[in-house]
């Protein structure tokens, strides 16, 4: 029965089979050519997209490296902003980034260790860890200007720290925190279960296992995360305007002393159309791009290696 019904179904198509083979049919050939053409056009469009996207990057890099290199001079690199030099801003940026790193690293690394090692023990720690992960995602998506306002109201005004390196550094460290937490957790989770089991079998306590085995093994990944977060904090401007202020002189203390930084120079001097101001802005853009690209790309290469293992 079945065989017969199949034959019935084939019946009407019999005449089609007698026709030319598909690749001899001009309509099929035409459609094939069209499809090939569409394919080539899409390839052309994607190449165009790449060119359009890379053009601004190359323009930015060339322009700032060229004009920045032209602006390099000893007085500009060693003088104070007062005499159109960048020395105080370079020192200030380094101070702010080091302060924020010193605050963010212990907090972020310990937080990451908690999420990776202690969060799966009971239901309550699972919920808590989920909340921490969620809020740290929220924190990394939060516009930094909001933290600047909060820092201004709380640290600068209420705590009485004034516009200062400490206020700026603390706000930057909060911005860095989610990145450090996340990369720490991920790197620790990468440590193979076999090694953990071996450590436990040898009688190691949890603390010994984490401190002597997991943490050292995860260290390269953790360092990568720290470098990435530093590259983010070095390029920040908005929150620092309201927490660090600006000064034409070298930093003079941790609180109640405004501090200069490179991004401020770009933000302010870019709008002043005199040669001196613009040269200074070009030079700081040059320095800033160099610093942050080196840090950022190092971290990204490291992260990619990390995700592959």
């Amino acid at each position: 029965m079945q065989i017969e019904s199949e034959k019935d179904g084939e019946g009407p198509k019999g005449s089609d089979i007698a026709r030319k083979l598909p690749w001899q049919d001009p309509r099929v050939l035409f459609r094939y050519k069209l499809r090939r053409l569409a394919d080539k056009m899409v390839v052309a469009v994607t190449i165009l997209a790449v060119v359009v996207v890379l053009y601004p990057l190359l323009d930015i890099l060339f322009m700032f490296f060229y004009r920045g290199a032209l602006a390099i001079s000893i007085p500009r690199l060693t003088g104070l902003t007062l005499q159109f030099g960048l020395a105080n801003a370079i020192v200030g940026t380094l101070l702010l980034v080091s302060l924020s790193t010193i605050i963010a690293v212990p907090l972020g690394v310990l937080g990451g260790i908690y999420l990776a090692e202690f969060s799966a023990q009971d239901q309550m720690s699972k919920t808590f860890a989920g909340t921490v992960r969620f809020l740290s995602d929220v924190l990394s998506g939060m516009p930094s200007i909001l933290l600047g306002y909060v820092g201004f109201l709380i640290l600068v005004i209420d705590f009485g720290w004034g516009l200062s390196p400490l206020a700026g550094g603390l706000i930057l460290s909060i911005l860095m925190l989610p990145y450090v937490i996340k990369t720490t957790e991920l790197s620790i989770r990468k440590v193979p279960l076999k090694l953990r089991e071996a450590a436990t079998a040898l009688g190691a306590t949890k603390t010994q296992m984490v401190n002597r085995m997991t943490f050292p093994l995860a260290l390269p990944g953790i360092l990568t995360g720290i470098i990435l977060s530093m590259s983010i904090s070095i390029g920040e401007t908005a929150p620092l305007l309201f927490t660090a202020g600006f000064s034409n002189y070298y930093p003079c203390g941790l609180t109640n002393c405004q501090v200069g930084f490179l991004t401020y120079i770009i933000y302010t001097f870019a709008k002043i159309p005199t040669t001196d101001s613009l040269s200074l802005a070009y030079l700081s853009a040059f320095l800033l791009i160099s610093f942050s690209l080196v840090l950022n790309m190092t971290a990204r290469i490291g992260l990619r290696r990390l995700s592959k293992i």
């Binding site: 996207v53 890379l54 601004p56 990057l57 323009d59 930015i60 322009m63 700032f64 590259s231 070095i234 390029g235 920040e236 401007t237 991004t263 770009i266 933000y267 870019a270 802005a281 853009a285 800033l288 791009i289 942050s292 690209l293 840090l295 950022n296 790309m297 990204r300």
Partner: peptide, 17 residues
């Protein structure tokens, strides 16, 4: 790699450009 470099440029530099 170059496309990711775009993400590494500070936003104030984009503003300047």
């Amino acid at each position: 790699f170059m496309v990711e470099m775009l993400a590494g440029i500070p936003s104030v530099v984009y503003g300047f450009w």
